[in-house]
Design a protein around this nucleic acid. Sequence first.
DNA 1: GCTCATGGTATCTATTGGAAACCCAGTACC
DNA 2: GGTACTGGGTTTCCAATAGATACCATGAGC
Lengths: 128, 128
Amino acid sequence: MHTEERPFDVMEPDCPSRVVLQRIGDKWTPLVFQVLKDGPRRFSAIRTSIQGVTPKVLTQTLRTLERDGLVARTVYAQVPPRVEYRLTPLGETLLGPLDAVRIWSEEHAGKILQARQDYDGQPEGQVG
Amino acid sequence: MHTEERPFDVMEPDCPSRVVLQRIGDKWTPLVFQVLKDGPRRFSAIRTSIQGVTPKVLTQTLRTLERDGLVARTVYAQVPPRVEYRLTPLGETLLGPLDAVRIWSEEHAGKILQARQDYDGQPEGQVG
DNA sequence: GCTCATGGTATCTATTGGAAACCCAGTACC
DNA sequence: GGTACTGGGTTTCCAATAGATACCATGAGC
């Protein structure tokens, strides 16, 4: 992709890109992407992989991602029901950026935990 | 940095890296980083740059970033008060990943808006 | 006609986010 | 010497969101 025109700017409060940024930066989205990265998964499989997410919230997350064209939902008419979720081509383009943030988190979690411990009882930086 | 051992895994529900991931993926953090990227800024300057954030929430966001060692807060003892926020070295290492997500948002906001419009009245993908 | 599995909803409560008003210290002005 | 202004917040109150828990519909198999 050559240098594309980007008319959107997250610093503009009414810019749609800000809405998009806050949506993809929500609590469960990066984890859903992490699960779907390796191929289609069923609802219960996603739920099991991401421990701690309740079905209500997972449904909400997946519905939003579907509406935004990042995830596709396929219902197979069989019993018991079978519903598969997979990344769309658009969703796959988001894997790189989300992975960068995930890897950063895993690499620096230790330093942040350390900073939190150091923070207690620390005097404020004061100058002047 | 060579290939460092990464003992943290965001898919583990109790792993600190998940907490970190969800913290840096919160609503205002990427925008704060975007403002501080170019150097130290005062509270009111940050608030003006990021339109739409209330002082209470901006304070909460900055305090958390400070506690996590990503942002440094300096109080100058003068009147009217003067408080500067700047990225720490650790915070600067997060600029790259956050920029990747921001740029993705700005590049693909149009496609997501389109998907939202197409979503209305769309029949479900159903296979049998 | 009881049970199981799947993919969810419904209901209620706890936590978080946001809007609006207020506060404090010192300094400049009148 | 009273008043207003300034910066960096805090307080209070209310709305929106997240989470826990229970429940539901369908049809197959027993």
